Amino acid sequence: MFRDCTQSLTPTAAMYPGDPQVERVPHATHEEDGYRVTRLELGTHSGTHVDAPYHTEPDGRTLDSFPVETFAFDALRVDVRGKSPREPIGGGDLPDATDGDLLVFHTGWDAHWGTDTYFDHPYLTADAAAWCADHDYHVAIDALNVDPTPTENARDDEPDGVPAHHELLGTDHLIVENLTNLDGLPRRFRLSAFPLSVENADGAPVRAVAEFGE
C-alpha cells in the first residue's frame, strides 16, 4: 500500500519565519496563449522538504551530491504524540538501536498545519540528534523543524540556534521536515522522499510517499 505523506505547496503553506512564501503566478493562459504555464516561486525549504548538510554547514554536502537511492529510506516510526507544545524529544524517547536508516518522529503536529500552534512544535534535543547520527540514522519529523522555531512562546531553557541540525547535517545525515498523514502507519515502512533535482541545493521540496504491507 502507498500513502502520500506530503504537505501541499500552497500560498498558505507554513514557512520558517523569514523564508519566502509559495507563490503561483500565471505566466501563460489558454485565453491569451493557447496553453497554460504557471510561474512557481518558493524556497528550497518549502512544504515537505529535505535538508542537505549545506543548509547549516558552510562546507557541507549539497543535495545533488547524494546518490538518488539515498532518498528511499527504510523507516522506523517513533511515536512521540504525547508531547506538549515546545517540549523536547530527548533520549528517553528514542528506540532501541535497530535496523533501518531513517527515524520518523511522529509528533502529530501536522494536525496544527495552517495555525499558529504549528510553530510551537516539539523538537529534538542536541543529544537526541547526536544519538541518531551516532547510530547512522537520517531523521524525519511531521513538524516544521527538528529544532525549536522562534515564536513569542519560546522558553528560556530552549537551545539557541539549530544544534539538532548541526548534529545531523554536520555528520552527513539528512533531515526531512513537514511530513503529514503518519497516523496508522506501521512501526516499520519504506519512505521515499525524492527531492527536486536542483544544482548545488541546500535543500529541496520532496514528494514523500510511505509504502507498507496491508
Rank of each mutant, 00 (worst) to 15 (best):
R77M: 03
K83R: 08
L103P: 05
R86C: 08
T98W: 12
L94I: 10
G100M: 09
F73I: 07
F71G: 05
F73T: 03
R81K: 14
E69K: 15
V104W: 09
L94A: 02
V68P: 05
D79C: 07
D99A: 15
K83D: 02
L94Q: 08
T98P: 12
D79R: 14
D110L: 11
R77P: 00
D110M: 08
L102Y: 00
P67M: 03
T98N: 12
E69S: 15
G90D: 10
L102D: 06
G90Y: 00
W109Q: 13
R86W: 07
K83A: 00
L103F: 03
L103T: 02
R81H: 09
T107P: 00
A111W: 00
F71Y: 00
T98S: 14
T107D: 08
D101M: 14
R86F: 03
T70S: 05
P88R: 11
P85Q: 11
F105D: 01
W109S: 12
D79L: 07
G108Q: 10
A75T: 02
G92P: 06
G82E: 05
G90M: 08
D74G: 01
K83Q: 03
D101H: 11
H106D: 08
D101Y: 10
V68D: 06
P95L: 12
A75M: 01
R86A: 14
W109V: 14
T107M: 05
V80N: 04
F73M: 11
P88E: 02
H106T: 02
K83H: 00
V68K: 02
A97M: 09
A72H: 08
R81P: 08
A111K: 12
L76D: 02
R86G: 04
D93T: 06
F71E: 07
I89W: 07
G91W: 01
G82D: 13
L76S: 00
L103N: 11
V68W: 04
A75F: 00
A97L: 11
A72V: 12
R81E: 13
R86H: 09
